[in-house]
Design a protein around this nucleic acid. Structure first.
Lengths: 248, 248
DNA sequence: GAGTGGTCTAGACCACGGC
DNA sequence: CCGTGGTCTAGACCACTCT
């Protein structure tokens, strides 16, 4: 468990905060196995002195990795690298990015694209009066040329003016971020049901095949609902896969 | 948006940290609507002065609520209460606790309970050699007397010595926490498939009915796998419902 | 320019775990 | 007992946003 002192390089002229420079280098050391799982980090005071930083700054760097689940602190013991392989926790990510990260070559077919009056369900989700004109987008998502999901999204009018070609090329979340929208949180429900004849045809499944359903409302940091989605996934080709961290 | 000064009471003799006392009272004020959504919190320096605290302490209290998604900070503007109704993010919770919190009167029927040699899948998940004797528990979870889920769990031998009666009365996570195990993270996969004849019979569904599946491996803070679960939920009576926060 | 949060310092004392 | 992280102070300067 004994640790030879790691070397960190800090650039005080950089606009990157010192605690962030340190946490990045620590994280890299953990991921590359330079800091073995279970090994102790060395106490904070000594580390601060060695780096020429104050203890609160070092603590801030360590804390950010504790929040990520990479480190565990124990009073009277020290700070240890977690043993288990931590993958990323569930993020506010889009299916497109997930598929791309998995090397699945995502593609999108835009089936529908225009405005519609909001139904009661959509109006409630977006927080607008029923009947308000809202943007409606219906897409089929493919991976390796095979249908994976049928995506139906409603957005407040005027929020995003992406055309069909932009929608075909990338994910909705990426488009919203590019438009300067800061995504803050989302409320999701994941369930399952049997495919109707129409859904089966679209997704290339037999009628009655089990489908995963997800409904999601996404909010920006002002509390505005920016998107309501109602999606269907082929259970035979897709599952939700994620990591949870305990809330201490 | 102007805010009349809120009153907070801090007890310096309490073992509860000052930042935590403050964050709890802030959270209560937000939840009770005393701090309206969108309202500004007042600047940190003034708040610190009024409470007789240092600014870092006040910042720590505020930061914990930002992490929970209740507050948003904007440089040059101030700290605001988030507009949207934030429910809790996805937690490391057990079905039992979820059902109980929803007022569903959960009950458990223990179907099986003993030790078994680990299959390849179980061995890989728990990080033990294949064939090692592991604890196996099979339960049926009911709500309002109706089956909701079929739960199969594998645990390392010797980790938990709960009897069938304890398993019938509460959830597995609660038992593990009582046994001094600190849950740290879990890896989950949620999917769907059609029910086999046997599964349909157990859950009171027609054969071929869509079921939600979840596989989960849970780790404690030393990185040990403490549980591998393979669960089936009736899609007609259960869905996963949760809130995500953006990772800034 | 005024006001806000973002970062950082150099100390201090306390609580808990292991020896 | 000693060493660890947990909490807290009283300042400082910077970066960003709004008017």
């Amino acid at each position: 468990m004994a640790q030879q002192p790691l070397h960190f390089t800090l650039d005080r002229t950089s606009p990157v905060p010192l605690y962030f420079q340190l946490s990045q280098q620590l994280e890299a050391a953990i991921e590359q196995g330079v800091l073995a799982p279970g090994s102790l980090l060395g106490n904070e005071i000594e580390l601060a002195g060695r780096l020429g930083l104050s203890r609160p700054t070092v603590r801030q760097a360590i804390q950010s990795l504790v929040d990520k689940g990479l480190l565990v602190r124990r009073r009277g013991v020290g700070t240890q690298v977690v043993h288990s392989q931590v993958r990323r926790p569930l993020e506010l990510s889009s299916l497109y990015d997930d598929l791309e990260a998995a090397g699945q070559r995502p593609a999108t077919r835009v089936l529908h694209h225009g405005t519609e009056p909001a139904t009661a369900q959509v109006a409630a989700a977006l927080g607008v009066p029923e009947g308000t004109e809202v943007r409606y987008v219906e897409r089929l998502r493919l991976a390796h040329g095979e249908p994976v999901a049928h995506l139906r999204n409603h957005l407040p009018a005027g929020l995003l003016d992406a055309g069909a070609d932009a929608l075909a090329e990338t994910g909705l979340y990426r488009l919203m971020r590019s438009a300067g929208i800061t995504l803050h949180s989302a409320r999701q429900t994941i369930g399952a049901r049997a495919a109707t004849a129409e859904e089966a045809r679209l997704l290339g499944e037999p009628e009655g095949a089990p489908l995963l359903t997800m409904e999601r409302t996404t909010f920006d940091d002002t509390g505005r609902a920016v998107e309501f989605g109602s999606h269907l996934y082929r259970a035979s080709r897709y599952s939700f896969d994620f990591q949870l961290l305990a809330r201490p």
